[in-house]
Amino acid sequence: MTGPDSPERARRDFSHLLSYGDYLRLDTLLSAHQPLTAAHDEHLFIAVHHVSEVWLDLIVRELHAAMSLLAAGVTDAPLKMLSRVVRAQEQMTNAWEVLKTLTPADYLEFRGAFGQASGFQSAGYRMMEFLLGNRNPAMLGPHEHRPEVHGPLLAAMSAPSIYDLALRLLSARGFALPPEVLERDYAAPYAEDPAVLAAWLAVYRGPQTHWDLYELAEKLIDVEDNFRRWRFNHLTTVERTIGFKAGSGGTSGAGYLRRALDTVLFPELWQVRTHL
């Protein structure tokens, strides 16, 4: 068949043209899958983590762009970027479902091969956390040996988070927020404030008047909701694979991950629901 819809009409000679594989540099991408053992399931383990790192790279890029615009007082484009972040988070969370096909016996075939390597050391994940406001100087330690990674992480930890920028936007719109909220030590954990809660309450009680702020708040809730889901799926995947053994990177494993579930990124946005 040689009609207009026939596959034979597709271009087939790419000796002097950019092909799909060339454009995506698939040789480079797939060559990074280098198992250290002959275990069949190590390839799965590497693939899931590679995919997650690619999504993290996109999330960080979108967060940086959204934050730059929020800092300039722009709200419409950041909402689209945060929607993209949410969708990418969903893909990361779904990746755990693939990894859960790895049984404890499967994992033990290659676990000892990668030594102290751990997702705890993911610079992409740490950057995402820092941009969202979950900060702890101790988390910089695993990256001190790589200045090109440590430097940007340190800068992110010392700069306003996306929530800090949202609060600055509230202030710019006339909501009374104290200086200790607006000009705080950004490397320190955020401390909830009654004035911030009062401001968000005003937004939620008058969404028609403050529609873009209301939409921004709900989009931040979407981001944190997915942040929590990813962590919960991480915990359950670890528990079903290694139980309560210590993590390869030195943490307590499931115990550390369970404690991390208590993290709240945007406290007043959750509290506002109780006070409405």
Results as ranks from 00 to 15, higher is better:
residue 216 L to M: 14
residue 218 E to Y: 00
residue 174 G to N: 08
residue 229 R to L: 10
residue 118 S to V: 14
residue 144 E to K: 13
residue 207 P to K: 04
residue 258 R to I: 03
residue 206 G to W: 07
residue 141 G to S: 15
residue 216 L to Y: 06
residue 166 A to I: 02
residue 160 P to W: 12
residue 241 T to D: 02
residue 258 R to P: 09
residue 245 K to R: 15
residue 196 V to H: 00
residue 250 G to K: 03
residue 161 S to D: 12
residue 250 G to H: 03
residue 210 H to V: 00
residue 190 Y to T: 01
residue 192 E to Q: 11
residue 184 R to N: 13
residue 205 R to N: 09
residue 208 Q to E: 15
residue 147 P to R: 14
residue 216 L to D: 07
residue 152 P to D: 11
residue 219 K to C: 09
residue 118 S to L: 14
residue 223 V to Q: 01
residue 246 A to H: 06
residue 169 L to Q: 08
residue 203 V to M: 09
residue 150 H to D: 09
residue 198 A to E: 04
residue 125 Y to W: 13
residue 146 R to H: 10
residue 173 R to E: 11
residue 194 P to T: 05
residue 153 L to C: 15
residue 163 Y to Q: 05
residue 184 R to H: 12
residue 137 P to Y: 06
residue 135 R to E: 12
residue 254 A to E: 00
residue 207 P to G: 06
residue 253 G to M: 03
residue 178 P to Y: 09
residue 127 M to H: 03
residue 134 N to T: 12
residue 225 D to E: 12
residue 163 Y to H: 12
residue 218 E to D: 07
residue 189 P to R: 01
residue 162 I to V: 10
residue 187 A to G: 15
residue 246 A to R: 06
residue 140 L to W: 10
residue 153 L to K: 15
residue 191 A to M: 09
residue 156 A to Q: 10
residue 169 L to R: 13
residue 148 E to Q: 15
residue 246 A to F: 06
residue 178 P to V: 10
residue 224 E to K: 05
residue 151 G to F: 08
residue 257 L to G: 03
residue 218 E to F: 01
residue 167 L to F: 02
